[in-house]
Amino acid sequence: MIELRDVCKYYQVGDDRVRALDHANLHIYPHEFVSIIGPSGSGKSTLMNIIGCLDTADAGIYLLDKTPIDAYSERELAKVRNRKIGFVFQNFNLIQKLSAEENVELPLIYQHVRRSERQRRVKEALMQVGLEKRAKHLPTELSGGQQQRVAIARALVTRPSLILADEPTGNLDSKTSREIMNMLHELHEQGNTIVLITHDDGIAHEAPRRIHILDGKVTEE
């Protein structure tokens, strides 16, 4: 499903050149549950952005479904992000002036789902993350953990085959983390591909396959 061949990403800050990804090689197969572990600043989010088609590599090849990413048109990429990938961002990335349910509804609007169907699925997704009572709240009226759960609901609502979660439990207490992890396991069992980023070894070990990243270098456990 996902194949990275010698992917590199550099950031030039002044005279310094940061190697956020350094010849990363990675192969993720359909229906896998992979966790990516690494210290802060090791390049986890960078890797995720490239996999999620938000960013492009400076060197190397990224194959999504056996097709090089360069071969996708702008419109096709938007479609991939919309339907195929569910992204849970490290910093939530909710639209501040939209309520929780509107944030969750947004990807469905871009899919041109009918209104009644949208409402049903939004309700369902919010229920899954236990936020049905906060549907009308704006992100600023929610706690960090609640915002995180809205972000998760938004990723799940389109039922994507690939879920990319960047520290989805980073802001949650152990009980809610547990629920989120159970949800991810459930999704995995339903056949979704899951890539989970974390710095928590315990959580990482719940995944059948673990990948380590350090200074932009990817190593398999």
């Binding site: 999620g52 702008e74 938007a78 992000r81 919309n82 990335n93 909710l94 938004r154």
Partner: peptide, 16 residues
Amino acid sequence: TREIGIRKAIGASRGT
């Protein structure tokens, strides 16, 4: 800008 980024990230196309 950020809002636009978010919208794009969750699937809004250029045309949208």
